[in-house]
Design a protein around this nucleic acid. Sequence first.
DNA 1: ACATAGACCTGTTGGC
DNA 2: TGCCAACAGGTCTATG
Length: 295
Amino acid sequence: MPELPEVETVRRGLQPVLEGARIEKVDLRRKDLRFPLPPDMARLLEGRTIRSVGRRAKYLLVEAEDAPLLICHLGMSGSFRIESGEGVLTPGVFHRERSVDRPHDHVVFGLTTYAGEAARVVFNDPRRFGFMLFADADGSHPMLASLGVEPTGNSLGGALLAELFRGRAAPLKAALLDQGAIAGLGNIYVCEALWRAGLSPRRAAGTLASASGGPTLRAERLAAAIRAVIAEAIEAGGSSLRDYTHVDGSLGYFQHRFSVYDREGEPCPKPGCSGIVNRIVQSGRSTFFCPACQR
DNA sequence: ACATAGACCTGTTGGC
DNA sequence: TGCCAACAGGTCTATG
């Protein structure tokens, strides 16, 4: 899936079409994805005007007038695509003259955009690990409530990282994937951030705190690496792996810049390092790292 | 409390 | 070429 940078890229692609658009029709092609779709989803959204398209961690948040907040998660293989009357909404490889259904189109939003044009926004998800849910009336939801700090902006620093990981025996890889600590990192960017910081994915997370509990140089390095890799990936428009595409159908570029992810057996790209990228399995997931420069 | 393994799904890929 | 096992961006649940 889509990790945070990909979800942010999707959000930015959806925003100009969705904001100010009136939802004419919500077509639920099946009654569940990972979880049951809200049975009253169509009734509660049809006729409403979308106010904003937000994001929290890997969740998209669609706010419409007089409707509960719609929480969308792309899971591993979920994607949105936009189909307008002209076929092409933004430059990209997606060209078609009219709307055509594809396998695994599960939810279709029929819209009238703010500019008054008809459009469809289609949620497609082969694996169906994605989901859509309504938040409570106050916009809260248990899935959102338990999320940790966003790795964007400047809120994530060495001190916070050390505090979050203090006393934790879990390997850094697992600790960074914990959405309750830092929200939005996934398998790829955790591998990349650890490589940038020169830290082993097997190192105990608690070793980022000093004896007094304060930050260490390692914690500062890792926090900076996380912020940088996420910011660069967003800037690049997310990555593109297998079934991930932008909402306009074009592909992301960030995968060209992966340093270790999916590079098992290749030389470590760090200047002066003669290590070879290794693949190990941690908590059932692949970890790619350089044993020579990541300690 | 914390940490790991299994479950949920379908599609793609690589090895024989 | 064909077949099948392994693997894939996530996260909830159960178990130790």
